[in-house]
Simulated scan of single mutants.
Amino acid sequence: MTTQAVLTHSRALEVARQALKVEADALLALGPRLGDSFEQVVQLMLSSSGRVAVMGMGKSGHVGRKIAATLSSTGTPAFFVHPAEASHGDLGMVTPSDIVLALSNSGESDELNAILPTLRRLGVKLVAMTGRPDSSLARHADHVLDSRVDQEACPLNLAPTASTTAQIALGDALAVALLDARGFRAEDFARSHPGGALGRKLLTHVRDLMRSGDALPRVTADMSLLDMMRVMSAKGLGCAILVDDQEHVAGIFTDGDLRRLIERGTDLRGLTAGQVMHGSPRTVSADALAVDAADLMESARITLVLAVDEQQRLQGAISINDLMRAKVI
């Protein structure tokens, strides 16, 4: 470009809105074209004992990496192979039990077409995602997913824009159909995302974070209030937990309870833990998800819950600070 570009505010909005409309129209046109071929590809991938090797050059390659990642995270093992590198050794990553998903809008990518005979000799099933069902890639494929678009969002109708959006959407549709067919659950998704927020919420249990053993501020009913306060200070949980001889939870006393006693002018001398405790503290199972404990704290407007077993015996305690440190909330 030899002259400085000049773009008015209204022109920028006009171009942007037109681009979005073109891409939205391209996506809407995909649905009616889905048919037997799509169902056959889903069945092929469901019944495969191998993985899905996704290939594509240029912008289709970038889309292919995303599709491979989405498939892998939703229960269909997949990986990306660069077609140019495949001709120089990386094709060894592909085994006869794998399925190749090849992306090319034109269907005439030289790098892809160069390895098609080798894939055929390997006996690998080939799925083509292309905008030209009559292309070389489509003719070599066992199944064809039609990703054609009427026009690109690019005003010059040159830069891959609507066509790559269609590829991404079609890849997402394939991944979601496979996810549904496999009965893939949120818990399964979390297992492949252990470092993410969803993984922490669905894989972290109260037992993993709770304070237990000597870290708990246990007290008995006959303990003096002053001795109970010393236990509370030593354990640093902001509460004391009343238990009986069998470790059943009988009550709780918090820093807030102490403050309210003082505000009322109560004579603290001579009081026992049993006299100031309030019963029915909020509890959860030690095997519950940590996020369930967080929900209980939020609904009850409290900052700590007790973990108990089926007989209501004390197992531990978990605070809002514990949940925050673990990034559950």
Rank of each mutant, 00 (worst) to 15 (best):
L202N: 07
I99L: 06
A69P: 06
T3A: 15
R132D: 10
R51M: 06
S135H: 04
R11A: 15
V124I: 02
H205F: 08
H205A: 15
Q246A: 13
L27S: 01
D25G: 10
P155N: 02
R269I: 14
D98A: 00
T8M: 13
H82N: 09
V124W: 00
A138W: 08
N321L: 12
V149Y: 02
D25I: 07
H248Y: 11
V94C: 08
T95L: 15
F79L: 10
M223D: 00
A215G: 14
D188L: 13
E85R: 13
F38R: 10
M223H: 01
A19K: 08
M297K: 13
A159R: 00
D322F: 06
A78I: 00
G92E: 14
G131V: 07
G251R: 02
G213N: 10
M129W: 14
T283S: 04
M223E: 00
V328C: 07
A84N: 12
F38T: 05
S72G: 10
L126C: 02
I262K: 10
D134M: 04
V41F: 06
S73V: 13
V284Q: 08
A186K: 14
L27D: 00
R120C: 06
K66E: 15
M232A: 02
D245W: 05
L202Y: 07
M297G: 02
G236P: 01
K21L: 15
S87P: 14
D322A: 07
M297S: 07
R260S: 07
L126V: 02
P155G: 05
A288G: 12
D267W: 10
R33G: 03
R200N: 09
D150T: 14
V243N: 04
R230S: 08
L27G: 01
S109Q: 00
A221W: 03
A86N: 03
F253V: 06
Q43M: 08
S47N: 13
S109R: 09
S49M: 11
L174Q: 05
A307L: 09
Q167C: 12
Q18C: 11
R185M: 12
G270Q: 11
G256D: 05
A166E: 10
L268Q: 03
V284S: 08
D244F: 11
G75P: 06
L306P: 00
S47A: 12
L314H: 03
L91F: 12
V305M: 08
E263W: 11
A86D: 02
S49T: 14
V231I: 11
D292L: 09
L71R: 10
L271H: 11
A300H: 14
G56S: 10
T118F: 15
L156I: 10
L209K: 01
G171F: 04
H9T: 15
S37M: 11
S106K: 04
D322H: 07
A16M: 12
G64T: 01
E39Y: 05
A162P: 02
L242H: 12
E187H: 05
I302C: 11
G279S: 12
G195S: 15
D208R: 03
G236S: 02
I262V: 14
G316H: 06
S212V: 08
E111M: 03
